[in-house]
């Protein structure tokens, strides 16, 4: 089939489209911005709410640390909660910046990659949660003190200290395994999809598309 006839067929298509479509000049001149703005609002909700929540959490954790100055385990647990809250705030700010800087002027592959990466960035928040795991017992101390004004260490005995240590080691191992598993290439594992339930299909789609873009960019061989 000649190139020329494909172009002729394409021109037929163009004429048909022209015939069946009308460009609404009124629409153009009024430029309805509502639809575009509302689609952006939906995407912003998660990072904005995450940021707001963890700013409050970080502030309280710092106040908690100062208030319990002198009690080493409360100071440490407050500092841990404050540190990870700040990390989540920074992660949300990074996501927000990425979303707000989406620019449809960019070359197609670059922009579609950036949009896919925004969707996948929720995995980074899970990585932060994985780093937090080994500090689980201290987080428990923090919550009992913050919510019930109860110092769990008053109940401590030898068995509790051993359990504390064992739990910390187990959580440490789990954390390392999770961090290894939370590579984007591993994201199709069933248990990880379960973990990402709710955002899973979007992430899988985004990752699928990222892989497609990678393949698309790599194709540069000669035609056989």
């Amino acid at each position: 089939m000649e190139n020329l006839s494909v172009h002729e067929i394409w021109k037929q298509n163009e004429m048909l489209l022209e015939h069946t479509r009308k460009l609404n000049v009124t629409l153009l001149r009024e430029v309805k911005l509502d639809k575009a703005k509302s689609s952006l609002k939906g995407v912003l909700f998660l990072p904005v709410s995450t940021m707001a929540f963890f700013i409050i959490a970080a502030s309280y954790a710092m106040y908690f640390t100062v208030e319990n100055w002198g009690t080493w385990y409360f100071m440490f647990s407050g500092a841990v909660v404050a540190f990870f809250s700040v990390m989540l705030v920074l992660s949300s700010i990074r996501q927000l910046t990425q979303i707000l800087s989406v620019d449809y002027n960019a070359p197609v592959l670059q922009l579609q990659k950036d949009i896919s990466k925004i969707k996948v960035s929720v995995v980074y928040n899970f990585k932060i949660a994985a780093w937090l795991l080994p500090f689980g017992p201290f987080i428990g101390l923090f919550f009992f003190k913050a919510l019930f004004n109860f110092d769990m260490m008053e109940l401590v005995n030898y068995n509790m200290i051993i359990s504390f240590g064992v739990v910390t080691i187990v959580l440490e191992v789990l954390s390392l395994l999770l961090l290894r598993a939370l590579q984007t290439k591993n994201i199709n594992k069933k248990w990880l999809n379960w973990l990402l339930l709710g955002s899973g299909s979007q992430i899988n789609e985004a990752l699928g598309f990222l892989n497609q873009i990678d393949e698309f960019e790599k194709e540069n061989g000669t035609i056989s």
Binding site: P107, V108, T222
Partner: peptide, 20 residues
């Protein structure tokens, strides 16, 4: 427009033409 190399464009167009 796409953000890929010229040679990549040629490769893809040739491949698409063969499929067509």
């Amino acid at each position: 427009a796409m953000g890929i190399s010229l040679s990549n464009v040629s490769t893809k167009i040739n491949r698409i033409k063969q499929q067509l």
